Lab assay of single mutants.
Amino acid sequence: MAAGGDHGSPDSYRSPLASRYASPEMCFVFSDRYKFRTWRQLWLWLAEAEQTLGLPITDEQIQEMKSNLENIDFKMAAEEEKRLRHDVMAHVHTFGHCCPKAAGIIHLGATSCYVGDNTDLIILRNALDLLLPKLARVISRLADFAKERASLPTLGFTHFQPAQLTTVGKRCCLWIQDLCMDLQNLKRVRDDLRFRGVKGTTGTQASFLQLFEGDDHKVEQLDKMVTEKAGFKRAFIITGQTYTRKVDIEVLSVLASLGASVHKICTDIRLLANLKEMEEPFEKQQIGSSAMPYKRNPMRSERCCSLARHLMTLVMDPLQTASVQWFERTLDDSANRRICLAEAFLTADTILNTLQNISEGLVVYPKVIERRIRQELPFMATENIIMAMVKAGGSRQDCHEKIRVLSQQAASVVKQEGGDNDLIERIQVDAYFSPIHSQLDHLLDPSSFTGRASQQVQRFLEEEVYPLLKPYESVMKVKAELCL
């Protein structure tokens, strides 16, 4: 049975990233139509530049190519590739079939990587351009969430054990800070992308030097003109047959890092959902379990974690691919890159769409948070109580021993009897502590235990987050809708 299948058929496997999760716009960027249309555009740009620099290419040939950029006979191309065992030459023939007058000058002087690699770089750039505003929107939604809850005390956790208090907004800023680093890295790697350009079979530009009869300047002009037509500021000066596969490492490393950030955020949300302090959106008709109707599973956060793990592992592909590119190139890269580049971007696209949807509907339960604080705060307040007693004339050592005994009794009630923490009640009825009984409410005010959390939130948002989001103001209103 021949390899390949009808990918629109229910009898043929289709990647869930495309069929179930990723956005239509990201799927289109990695589609065959987008790819092969870009090949034709690159052939047109090459012909236009070659004509401008004096090669015998007519206006009629150029116009014929322009008129057929979208006229792609995919069936013919597939048949040609089956016959020739070469995808680029299959599309040269297919393009030439609908451009008979231009057929002889299509791909003039070029090698397969002229269309293959340059198209990949265009796709990487455009895919990054799709991700950047999506990530900015996630940051914006979380920034709104953090600002609104900047002063809401909550129990902090280290080692997932109760620690000092923080605020809900401050905790959210930990998430935002990681995503801001990801946004900066995505922008950097996007701006650092260079075009492969017009380089020939081993990167020496020998074929173009021959076409222009040894004119170095025209060869350099050709490279520059096509690079500018493709919208790049610069091209690699040095290439082998391909652009260095280190570029793929750079791009997928940034995406993998984004995956790590999203995994951490969504894990926190899942843990908070278990504590009943916070939940992701839950639709009115949504079913959490087929057997347990009360369940409210954090399905979206779980999906993000599941896909983020996949995204983090994909960076190993370009690392290994770059390491086995012998001399000017081997074909070890080809099949692998067809999979890992598309999957990385479709996965990143999915987790950003999902995280935006989550961040637009996060639900906080202040009463649950308050109750958990009441359970733990008495123990945390013991040092403040000791200091207040010393100020009232008591002995630190005597007070410490009193607190120690009462704390152990209260802990026994919590752990052995399943009761509430009654340390404060014990202190309130103990005559030894009568000098500070009137101060206990103040000493137990949760806001006095959150330090500068709310001020940190305000400063972080104003100095770091809002300036970073400013270039994306025009796209901030787009909502994230999930079908599944």
Rank of each mutant, 00 (worst) to 15 (best):
L258R: 00
D422F: 09
A103M: 12
H159D: 00
I122A: 03
L255Y: 02
N297S: 00
L275K: 02
D349K: 04
W175Y: 06
S19T: 00
W326R: 03
N336M: 07
K75A: 14
Q375H: 07
L258N: 07
L165R: 04
A308E: 03
G8N: 15
R194W: 09
V262S: 14
C180F: 02
P133L: 15
H91S: 12
K479G: 15
T52G: 12
V262D: 05
L152K: 07
T204A: 09
I106P: 03
I424H: 14
S207D: 01
D182W: 01
A322Y: 11
H437G: 07
D59C: 13
D178T: 04
L130C: 12
H7A: 10
G4M: 14
T204K: 00
I351G: 02
Q408D: 10
W45K: 01
L142W: 11
D268W: 00
S290Y: 03
E79G: 10
A335M: 00
E220M: 12
V363S: 04
C304W: 03
R83T: 11
F208A: 00
L193P: 01
M225E: 11
D129A: 12
N353P: 08
L132F: 10
D11H: 15
V413T: 13
F195A: 05
D11M: 12
E473T: 13
I106A: 05
A308H: 07
A136D: 00
L252H: 11
A260Y: 05
W43P: 02
E220Y: 13
P471G: 15
Q177E: 12
A256M: 08
R14G: 15
M316S: 12
K35L: 10
E481A: 15
F433R: 03
I106D: 00
S261E: 05
D6Q: 02
Y365H: 10
M278C: 10
M389E: 05
L128P: 03
E360R: 01
A136M: 15
R338M: 03
R309F: 06
I72E: 09
R337Y: 02
D420N: 01
V413A: 11
Q356L: 09
K246S: 04
L128R: 03
R329L: 04
D430R: 03
S19H: 15
K477C: 15
R190F: 09
P293Q: 00
R137S: 15
R14Q: 15
M312N: 03
I176W: 01
V363E: 04
H400K: 06
T52W: 07
L128M: 10
W175Q: 11
S448K: 15
K75P: 06
N384F: 05
T227N: 07
D441W: 07
R338P: 00
Q409G: 10
P446L: 05
V88C: 02
L211M: 14
